[in-house]
Amino acid sequence: MKIAVFVKQVPDSAATLSVKGGQPDWGDAPLVINPWDEYAVEAALLLAEANGGEVTAFSFGSESAADALKHALAMGVSDAVLLSDPALSGADAGVAARVMAAAIAKLSEVDLAVFGKQAIDSDTGLAPSMTARLLGWPSLTLVAAVDALDASAKTIKVQRSMEEGRQVVQGKLPAVISVVKDYGEPRYPSFMGIRKASKAEIPTWSMADLGIEAPTSRVTWPEIMAPPMREVSNEIIEGSSPEEIAGKLADKIIAEGVL
């Protein structure tokens, strides 16, 4: 099996986001692999281990995105490729999807493309479905488990995580899946993986390498505003019994005019 997994480099989830000069600003927060994508790498590795095969990690971004790829290498993927081109700064999800679809085509004979649920910076969650649409592959999003995968019959059966429960869906390979946390805790990088990653020279595929024209963004962010801060104060209501606490709470709610 040939599996492609996509990882993005994003500001650390602990970073505070503010708006500076009409642009989002994460301060000097360290960049890390998108946490959802760690689950994607874990899923890709588990599927490759169970079904035989190799995992190639791709990242679309600037040169610093190589760090996310190094993390994937350290976790155990066989190869990593950076998708980068100076012509593509400020790309929207559509551009990213076109580039990623072209990378899958160039790698050729890919059976499965694995994504995280969404990226924690832009938070759109569009990449998996858009990429699938461009490739004409089934898009199985929010996957919590793969129940069955038959590489020779080219079928896959997954459980999708829904608010109401799990939805079992079957599809044909090649397919795109996006995975959620339920898939399983991502492994730590192994020491051997860390060494391999630190020695790895990560190749870059430009648009010319992919054989496509640099796509243009349809979405621009002309201005970004921070919502006004809300004043929040917390109070812990104490009492000797639940009834007493509930009574005090009800009085407070009425006094504050919430109801």
């Binding site: 350290a74 990088p189 020491f191 860390i194 990653a197 630190s198």
Partner: peptide, 15 residues
């Protein structure tokens, strides 16, 4: 610190 050092540090810190 080199890349190996940083990788080891982060992995053990996460653990």
């Amino acid at each position: 610190l080199n890349e190996e050092h940083l990788g080891v540090q982060k992995m053990v810190r996460d653990f």
